[in-house]
């Protein structure tokens, strides 16, 4: 490839496509092809200058963590952002594998397909994956149905995360958070300092200038690091398309059983979600814009069968990405509160 090619924006129609994932694509096959990165893989050939700039920035950030922090860990949530960040990690340390463990905080209410995806991808890539669940929370019977979304998130996500970070004595944790997701995230640093209790103090953040990141922490303190800070939802999907990265099939539309609850479409992912009086499950063509605990994650009606469809659907959408998340609607400024308490 010449430099001139490099600078030229490419129309999507001209993009070389070896792989078109849909909800029906056999996952194991898709993931194995991706892991091999054989001759048919795009290997950066479809990246626009803008995506390449974002990728370069993310690579620099990830290398900075590995060079400066003693015990980094990668928070792998199995969602699209995490999976894109994982792809960038493969690039950043090549030919070495990513030199840190991967951590999944499992609430036991993740969509079943997320776990299937994780359990194929992690061994195929040879990741050092560690899964942690807040056992104490389970013993106390915390769950999203009886306890409510706020308490469930606090105990199973935030507390679970803190337990795992403390147990591993990690001094830096990569997260896939983006500034365009939510208003308080927009003020987040790329290297976000957390005190020994994992708290975030938005009024007392370190100024972050140029690419000169202050990575210094005292014992017990840590950094949350967000290499995708400057990516938008559209950038993430465009990157997934350009690099042919497999994602959890729930992102693609399929006929799934759902009920309407609190204005959101909730999918009956397993038998644990009791129906309320008057609720009848319906089979609808739906997909998810974000993934998490299934009883708290709203679906949207959609006919988007592959990434191209998702991108064109998103161009027309009038609703934001987090609109399907019950957890963010709990109260005004709820994300900021959760982050102060140590949420990602």
């Amino acid at each position: 490839m010449t430099d001139a090619d490099d600078q030229k924006p490419r129309a999507p129609a001209a993009v070389r496509r070896a792989f078109r994932q849909t909800a029906a694509t056999p996952l194991a096959e898709a993931i194995r092809a991706y892991v091999r990165q054989d001759a048919g893989a795009p290997r950066g050939a479809n990246l626009s200058p803008h995506l390449r700039a974002l990728e370069n920035e993310a690579i620099e950030i990830m290398r900075e963590v590995v060079a400066c922090c003693s015990r980094p860990v990668f928070l792998y949530s199995i969602g699209k952002d995490s999976t894109v960040m994982l792809h960038v990690a493969r690039k950043a340390f090549h030919p070495a594998p990513p030199p840190f463990p991967f951590l999944h905080i499992a609430t036991t209410w993740d969509f079943a397909d997320m776990i299937v995806f994780r359990d194929i991808l992690a061994p195929e890539l040879g990741l050092d994956l560690r899964v942690h669940t807040n056992q104490d929370g389970l013993n106390r019977g915390i769950n999203p149905i009886a306890s409510g979304s706020a308490l469930h998130a606090q105990v199973m996500s935030t507390e679970g995360l803190k337990q795992a970070l403390d147990a591993g004595s990690y001094d830096a944790a990569f997260g896939g958070g983006r500034r365009d997701e939510e208003k308080s995230r927009a003020k987040e640093r790329i290297f976000s300092f957390r005190d020994a209790q994992h708290g975030w103090n938005p009024r007392n953040q370190r100024p972050e200038l140029w690419n000169l990141y202050n990575t210094r922490v005292a014992k017990g303190e840590s950094m949350r690091v967000f290499p995708l800070s400057n990516w938008t939802e559209m950038d993430v999907w465009s990157y997934i398309r350009a690099e042919e990265i497999p994602v959890v099939p729930l992102y693609f539309a399929a006929s799934r059983p759902v009920v309407m609850r609190q204005g959101a479409m909730i999918m009956l992912d397993d038998g644990r979600l009791p129906l309320l009086p008057g609720e009848t499950p319906r089979m609808l063509d739906v997909r998810f814009r974000t993934l998490g605990c299934y009883p708290l994650t709203g679906a949207m009606e959609s006919q988007a069968r592959d990434v191209d469809d998702i991108i064109s659907e998103m161009s027309r959408s009038t609703l934001s990405e987090r609109q399907g998340r019950l957890i963010d609607h709990d109260e005004a400024a709820s994300m900021e509160r959760k982050k102060r308490e140590g949420y990602f």
Binding site: P9, P12, S48, P49, H50, L51, A53, T232, M234, D235, S238, I311, S312, S315
Partner: peptide, 9 residues
């Protein structure tokens, strides 16, 4: 808002 990263970067 369709697409990403056009012309001028």
């Amino acid at each position: 808002t369709g697409g990403t990263a056009p012309g001028r970067g």
